[in-house]
Each structure stands twice: as structure tokens, then as C-alpha cells.
Design a binder for these strands. Sequence first.
DNA 1: ATTAAAACCGACTGATAGTCGGTAAATACC
DNA 2: GGTATTTACCGACTATCAGTCGGTTTTAAT
Lengths: 217, 217
Amino acid sequence: MRAKNSEHLSPSGRGGRKTRAMAKQAERRAATTEAILTAARRLFGTQGFAATTMDEIAEGASVAKGAVYHHFKTKEAVFEAVFDQVSRDLVAEIDRTARAEKDVLAAMVAGTQHYFAATAKGPTGQIILRDGPAVLGWERWREIDAQHFGGKMPRALSAAMEAGLIARQPVEPLARLLLGAVTEAAVACAGRADIARAGAEYARAFKSLVEALRVRA
Amino acid sequence: MRAKNSEHLSPSGRGGRKTRAMAKQAERRAATTEAILTAARRLFGTQGFAATTMDEIAEGASVAKGAVYHHFKTKEAVFEAVFDQVSRDLVAEIDRTARAEKDVLAAMVAGTQHYFAATAKGPTGQIILRDGPAVLGWERWREIDAQHFGGKMPRALSAAMEAGLIARQPVEPLARLLLGAVTEAAVACAGRADIARAGAEYARAFKSLVEALRVRA
DNA sequence: ATTAAAACCGACTGATAGTCGGTAAATACC
DNA sequence: GGTATTTACCGACTATCAGTCGGTTTTAAT
């Protein structure tokens, strides 16, 4: 151990000097931040938040601890950044899956299923479902979640109401309830050996719940 | 500061000596444990888990830190015991409320509403909804929760199916989903200033969800 | 060239969860 | 009764780790 870094970044091409040069510092910043985030994401994902130390993160990113604190105020701040990144990636995946469906409700179910699968195990689940609420606090967690995956639920419901698929009613509360249901299901799946079967089971139950809302003639 | 204890327990009445005496040690144990739990419950409830130190708990219980560690292996163990106690109390309250209703589904809604109110603010909410999942981990949290409040949901659903109020289907997954919905709602309520209004809002949404499941002619 | 500002370093500090050797009280055994 | 053993309790001490701080190097502005 002890490789240290000695490049940090290469000067790359220098175009203008004063007129257009302001990129060196920014590049450096971006590179270091990314290294920290990458290391932190790996460590948080495998060991969990509590078992990961700031020294490990610094070591993993090949920078001194001071550098980490130069870019992030606290350990929680590092986690939040990682959390945000993972969420963003997850949402992108889910979007791709859901876009394939036609019916809004069907897309909701499909997206949900993907959410199950992705968060059921591995680093993503550790970060999103386990440490997320624990570290950020449930309020903050839900707040961020609402900006990513969680925000899709209200939109889907609104669309469904608009299309006359389900009865008109206050969207927000219902969305929260359904989101809570989904999250709970994901967590429940995460704790089981037969994830595939469990996932299917919950997906069916969720579908049944959503279908119950569908207006009938 | 520095009152210390000098009674710890009174010898109380001594009945038999050897034949029936084995209560002194147990009493002592129980008294100390209870003192610790009482102090911990107050501190965890008001300051939260992270902001409460073991020294504070020991001080609050008028014992040395060593005594606390003699009875509880870790800080988490203390919390778990407190959590268990609070859960038990909450369930007892909810039971009383729900028993007043007649319809099984109605009881479910009523019990849920009580759950909202109780966990929305104050020490109970802090312990059950905030620190609970964070400290115990979501799995363990749900496991304990299932033994208390959570365990009621499957039973209620079974009864509802039995009575023909809702369509027959796998109970466990649906129960989990609804429980997740309720919990989410409670958390959402907890984070709002107008708890009364929010609670009513979510209660209505939950009712709408449950009612959607009701079989129709 | 000079000055300022931002990135980075790593030894140090403060707080606290958990330990450990020891004392006192209760219980078991003779 | 006395002696040994087990259980409850004590509080100074240790280990760990988040966060700090004065100092150094690199980049940018003038």
C-alpha cells in the first residue's frame, strides 16, 4: 500500500491563456470529486455507510482526507452525493423499461417491477433502501426520492386519471401511499433468498392493488 | 449534579430464606434494567438515538456506565429494548381504538388513523419512525414491527376475505403493501405542520385504497 | 513578477462506544 | 455459622473515527 497519486490531471491542451483558459481548476475539481464519489460509492455499496470510514474513502480516491473535506462538508454530504448519483442511474434504467409499455398503469407496474429487481440486492439496494433513510433521515430521503423515482408516481396517477383509468381524487396522498407500498415491497424482497419468486408475488399484489383502483363499468 | 444512588433497592420483606428467597437478585436486576430503559426512552425520544450518549443514559438511570453494559451488550441493544417497549404500548392503544369498530375494514382504517396520530410527532414518532429503521436496519425493524403493529394487518385482511369483504388473494404480499403505505403516510404526516389536516387527507386516501379492494356486486 | 485564490496535505483534537480489572452484594454449599 | 461462587455494579482507561487546522503546492488574476 502507498501508491499515492502523482498525476492528478494532465495539463491537456492549452488553448487561449487568459481569454478562455478557465478550465484547469474546474477540471481538477471535477476529477477529484469524481474519484471520491467513485470510491465512496463502491465502499458504501459493499460495506454500508457506518462501516465505511472517511480515511478509507480518501485512500480509495488516492487523496488525503483533507481533500475530501475540502469538497464535502461532512461524511453525510458524501453519502448524499452518492445517493443522488445512484438514484439518477436507477431512474434512467427504469425510464427505459417503462417507456416500452403503452398503458400508463401498465408502465407503472413495469417500472415498479424494475425497481424491485434493482434495489433488492447488491450495492444499489444497500445505498438506496438501507442506508438512505438511515443516514439522510426519512424526510430528506423522501424529498430526494421524490425528485427521482418517487416523482414519477404522481405524474403517472395524474395521467391515469386524465385518461379516465382511475377515479379522480387527490393525487399526492394516493401517490405517497402507493410509493410507500412499492418501497416496502422492495425491502421485503431484498430480505429474501428467492428474490425472483418474491418479486413476482409482490408485483402481482401491487398490480391487484392498482387494478382495484381502475374504474369499472 | 452527583446524587448517585444509595438504595438501589430495599430488602423488602424477607419470607423464606433458602426455600423461597430467590427474588432479591432478580428484583435488583429488574429495577436497574427498568431505570435504564426509562432513562433511555426519555432521552431517545427527545434527543434521538445519535445525540444520546451512553453516559447520559447511565447518568439518567443513576448507575455507572459499566452497569448499563452489564445488562445491554451495545447501545443498539438498549435502543432495541426501548423500541420494543414503545411498540408494545402503541399496539395496546391501537387495539383499544380498533376494538370499538365493527366492520373489519373499518377497524383497519380506524387503527391506521390512530397510528398516524401517535407516530406523527413526539417521542413515539422519533423512536418508531425515525431512529427505528436507521438503528436496527430495515430488516430487523420490519421483523419487530411485524410482531407488533404489522402483525395485525394480515389478520385483518384474512378476516376481511373470510367475511367476503374483499376478494380472496395471497394475504402476505398485500398486507406488506398496505403496511408500507400506512407507514409512508405516517412519515409524511410526521413531517408536516398541519398534522391534523394531513392525517385526515391520508386517512381518506387510505380508505379509498382499502375500499377499492372491497368486492362489488 | 506579485498577489490572490483554490486544491491539497496529514498530523492533531474531541467525542464517545465499548473494555477491563476490581469491589460489593447476594447466593450456594458445607 | 463460615467460605466459595456467582452476579451486580463501578469508573478510569482505550480504540476508533469524524472533523479541524496550519501549512504547502498548484493555478489564476493583474
